[in-house]
Nucleic acid binder design. Structure first.
Lengths: 246, 246
DNA sequence: TTAGCATACTGGTCTGACCAAGATCAGACC
DNA sequence: GGTCTGATCTTGGTCAGACCAGTATGCTAA
């Protein structure tokens, strides 16, 4: 379809990019390999060095390679930061996407917790337990509390032993950190939130321990729903906007 | 923490990239806007044009801007292709990631179907129904059948009216298309798969129509599980590997 | 054998230049 | 006066060659 890559008809950048893409996808360039120097690449493909740099830079932002100053360019294992950047930019231009990203996060986490029920090992359990304890300890602190909350949820995803889920989750995590924090600041406003936070997370933890995917998923979903409800109430209570038009 | 962007201490590329990132994230550069020319940007930031091009190219592969030959560089709405590229590269270097990506896909789709139950409109229902009909019609064709299957699942995600979920789903879709196809080729091998494919999808459809998130999610999950089972049986039957160490 | 230095090599960047084609505006023509 | 045409300006696309600053290497001298 859109192949014929590395043929002659391409512009400079495309040529270099396609050349590298080919080797990368074919596997002849594996993580850890060092590419030939920019100069060699340039003369090899009949383009100038700036063009080669464009291509290398492109692969860099995709997290495929890493340009090391005065050392060379090496192939790396795909990195999270790409998705992070993407979501960051995407969100900046469409702020309404935040709820949307939250939905994706819920999706990832609920799937992760199901897998975690099957795959979690002792170390995962311990990590979860530590995170759970931390939540209890930092219940009155906005910053530390938010982080503890985040750590717990991340521990769930890590326990799924799925790299893709982990990558996706952490790429969205940064963006949702703010909402995490602001939610945490509601603890003072809603005293009932303390028990919600502690009990919910404990129930989630117990479901994972019990290795009961259905219960874990359902409990986690409920947890998110209640969190949303708190946030909604806070908005209405504070600003009292959107009171019209039901 | 890691700010101080656009300060003086940065290297050329970082300076330009940070400069643009700032405006992009702050919103002073919105989709549709045209950037100043490369030359202006270069002199403005005190770097050379090749460096500016690196930065612009970086933003291009991130799907943030589009460089139009002899026109200029314009800000675009974030595009799916980034994630597509990323997953493609990532998968190429870790083939074992395929099951992992499948998990992510299940995650997205199950969340999407829940949202679809709430948000789907008549048009969505019709699209689903058409896709469902197509599945029945093409049940004996590998290619068309696979596409019909794929369309149905995509219709679910579209019906969620969540752009993020849609983006994530479609970015993984291409990669899983092969497995879709190969699964479809099993139809001949397992006659019972016909009813499985048709009935399952109909049940899923009905659950969405009924706007029953729990049932929809559960049905969809079961659908995936059975599909996995078929695939597993096919592998065992065909190749009979992994028969030991059950 | 080993310590030390010269050198080749690497990425990082700049300068200035050329090309092709879209954008613009002045002048010519209707 | 209005419209069309073409010269010119501007834009991206690219190249060639050069310089810098460290790294890596290897050769030489101790």
């Amino acid at each position: 379809m859109e192949l014929k890559r590395t043929a002659e008809g391409e512009k400079g950048f495309e040529k270099v990019f396609a050349f590298l893409r080919e080797r990368l996808l074919a596997g002849s360039l594996k993580p850890g390999d060092r590419l030939i120097s920019e100069r060699e690449l340039a003369s090899l493909l009949g383009v100038s060095r700036p063009i080669v740099r464009e291509a290398l830079r492109a692969l860099t932002v995709l997290g495929i390679v890493e340009i090391r100053d005065r050392i060379g360019t090496v192939v790396t294992r795909p990195d999270v930061s790409v998705l992070n950047d993407f979501f960051t930019f995407a969100l900046a231009q469409q702020a309404d996407m935040l709820d949307d990203v939250m939905q994706a996060r819920v999706a990832i986490e609920c799937q992760a917790i199901r897998l975690a029920c099957e795959r979690a090992n002792i170390a995962d359990f311990e990590r979860l337990q530590r995170a759970l304890a931390k939540i209890g300890e930092t219940i009155d602190e906005a910053d530390a509390g938010g982080m503890a909350d985040f750590d717990f949820h991340r521990a769930i995803v890590v326990a799924s032993h799925s790299e893709t889920l982990t990558v996706l989750h952490s790429s969205m995590a940064g963006l949702l950190t703010h909402s995490h924090r602001s939610r945490r600041e509601l603890v003072q406003a809603f005293p009932s939130m303390k028990t919600y936070l502690i009990d919910d997370h404990r129930r989630i933890f117990e479901a994972v321990i019990a290795r009961d995917p259905e219960r874990a998923d359902a409990t986690l979903r409920k947890h998110f729903a209640i969190g949303d409800e708190y946030r909604r109430r806070a908005v209405v209570g504070d600003i009292d906007k959107s009171s019209a038009s039901g």
